[in-house]
Write a protein that binds this DNA or RNA. Sequence first.
RNA 1: CGGGGUGUAGCGUAGUCCGGUUAGCGCGCCUGCUUUGGGAGCAGGAAGCCGCAGGUUCGAAUCCUGCCACCCCGACCA
Length: 570
Amino acid sequence: MRYSTTFIPTLKEVPSEAQIPSHQLMIRAGMARSLASGVYSFLPLGYAVVKKVMQILREEMDAIGGQEFHLPALNPIEIWEQTGRVAEMDDVLFHIKNREGLVLAPTHEEIIAYHARQHIKSYKDLPQIWYQIQTKFRNEPRPRSGVLRGRQFVMKDSYTLDATPEGLDAGYEKHRLAYERIFTRCGLNFFSVGASSGAMGGSGSQEFMVESDHGEDTCALAEDNSYAANIEVATSWTPPIERVPGDDAIEKFATPAAKTINDLIEKHGIPEERCAKSVVYIAGGEPLLILMCGNDELNEEKLARALDTTQFRPAEENELLANTGAHGGSIGPIGLKNPKMRVIADLRLKGVNGLVSGANEDGQHYRNIDLERDATIESWHDLRVVREGERVGGPDGPRLRVVRAIEIGHIFKLGTKYSKALNAVFLDENGREHPIIMGSYGIGVERIVACFIEQNHDELGIRWNAALTPYDVQIVGMNTKKSETVRAACEELEAELQAAGLKVLYDDRPASPGVKFKDADLLGFPVQLVVGDKNLDNGQVEVKSRKTGERELTARENALEAVRKLLAAS
RNA sequence: CGGGGUGUAGCGUAGUCCGGUUAGCGCGCCUGCUUUGGGAGCAGGAAGCCGCAGGUUCGAAUCCUGCCACCCCGACCA
């Protein structure tokens, strides 16, 4: 391909709307343009990369027995109503306005279950692995970071249909391994974490993550990589809190200026682990007191699992006062104004005495609290958010790092939520009817592209690897306007490299060398082949690795070999 | 949805507080000449409903009202 005939609109300056490197570079390198908030047009160069990712996805999905579908984005709303997801997804689901009864599909569990119901009748029809690479629509409240969170995006989604839980486990494992191969082939530095299934439902799930300050998720990683989990489910080892000797009765004392745990520590000399922090929520319409140790932060995802509902929220100031008798800062488990108030506590506090907590009277706290003796704790749960530096497994375990991350893939053991709702059933060997057991697996295609750029760029531009690069090599012709020698050599090399199966972009523009070099570095194909009169006089051309920045002269007849070598090393 | 910010030529921006030339600059674009190993030089040129609508005023990019769009933080996120 000749550069002079392509549409690769590069930009020298950073567009003001782009804040993160991948977004800036996708715009600057002429890969994509924004059309509306969260909606991007992919230009030829960007789409070439997307197609390479899709090819890898297809190869690996086919390799585990996946069968490719192409399901519609326009869906009848009835099907979505049957699974309850019209209400569940609420505003995220796009509704068609001028044709009643249609929505834009944000994912395809429903449609898969619908077709399974039509034709999967027997255990003999199972298992199945169905997948597609297709555009999804989600009315995200806040699109951000370029293509990382869009309202329209391409997803590889696949679904396993099984007769038994063991079958689901096998299909899930196949996907887990396929995903590792996919991300490895793409050249991503990634890790996988145990995750919360969230509103998708189901029993098990894992996320594939790329560490990035621009990620929307937070993960806890052991320093030796022996443990990795989404912060929503992450646990850590904390030193046990010893019981203090004696059996002193609780005692009220004045704490006029203590509003926070830090106030108790600093103004009253109480050790952090002897403070029981009270957090009040309204769960299912009823007030709930949650006790946390010291400054531990309540993890709402863990709370949701403990309560088996997401229907809760922090109490407001007037609700605090009405139920406890005090304002925030003086609340505790003893002497609550509302005697029916439920109290749960974090596991760290189990069996601990000598605690200080609010007396439900402004400016007053109790000391010498023994939760087992003095309070009624309905249940104990792990409810805390783990912190950077805590250990995993025990006092000698590896320390945790807490990092931001971008989710590039997610695998779920769905179970029968959708098959039950849509009556997708099969008959077993004994003629008995069962709902099909489903798994659901997703990869964000544009996110792979953006994450790759996040991990592979420098101040000059992108640094593609051989797997994802839109072109293998860029021929940079020096003074192609005047020098017929250079032009002829470039054209010969272009033909030679193309004949060898390489994808070549020949920069034949009559521009100055600086412009061509800068564009070549910005586009970032793995190899640059620089052709100029000076070196041609010696029968030589220059090859440059975008990855290392190293250049070397090579005999013109060895150019193909030199390019291949650098490409392989990219 | 809450908070913050920004809308001026394809891109980046000055001017806006304090109303008053023909709305300025850099990049890019077009023409010509020169130049060609790291974003060249000279000369000439095209391109702006100053986000939209209304209002105030002799006069509005600038002041007022409403709306829209985009970005950031938060909420949300299969």
